[in-house]
Amino acid sequence: MEDKKQGADSNSKKGISRRSFIRGAGLSTAGSVLLTTNAFAFGSEEKLTAGKEFGPGATTIQMKINGMVESLSVEPRTTLAAALRDHLELTGTKVVCDRGSCSACTVYLDGKPVNSCMMSVFDVGDKEITTIEGIAKNGELHPVQEAFIEHDASQCGYCTPGMVMSCVHLVENNTNPTLDDVKNATRGNLCRCGTHPHVFKATLAAANKTN
């Protein structure tokens, strides 16, 4: 780190810093600098490998989901949310806004919460999907799910699966979450019933119980 710092100092002592050069360059009308004319010439021997094309009709693909491998026949326009609900009958994942704005459709892609409504099922590849159906283990509810019941954290229930996914992810990745952490984790989860205060209480209670 020290070396890096010294590097920055010596650089700024020169007559013209990189920064002021770039700012100056921006004033020219062209505004762009040509870096190279042969960006692809990594090795002249290498041949271009063409990618694979699927669809537009249905293709049979395999998907790792909740610890199983499922086979399904889907078109590229099929969203992951639609594949879960309509092809695999995993209807715990809810589609509400269908535009990535409400997070009701939250699932994990390799452990990270994502909106399953805003991705094609072809985006999944060999990544692992976890849905709300995969949260309870061996018939036992996750502590967050139990706490949601105990603290009355759902009303109409449409946001609940997505809300649970966000809160479980937090509790599994943060051993001692604060109220702000819970708020941050559920930032994207809209709830028209206004259950947020109960969701916060439930998640903090679950975190305390887990740890």
Binding site: K52, F54, G55, F122
Partner: peptide, 17 residues
């Protein structure tokens, strides 16, 4: 959504073609 095909690009050059 209307139907479309899905091309899984392997490189920048492949994608640009």
């Amino acid at each position: 959504m209307n139907k479309f095909s899905w091309y899984e690009a392997t490189s920048i050059e492949d994608a640009l073609q």
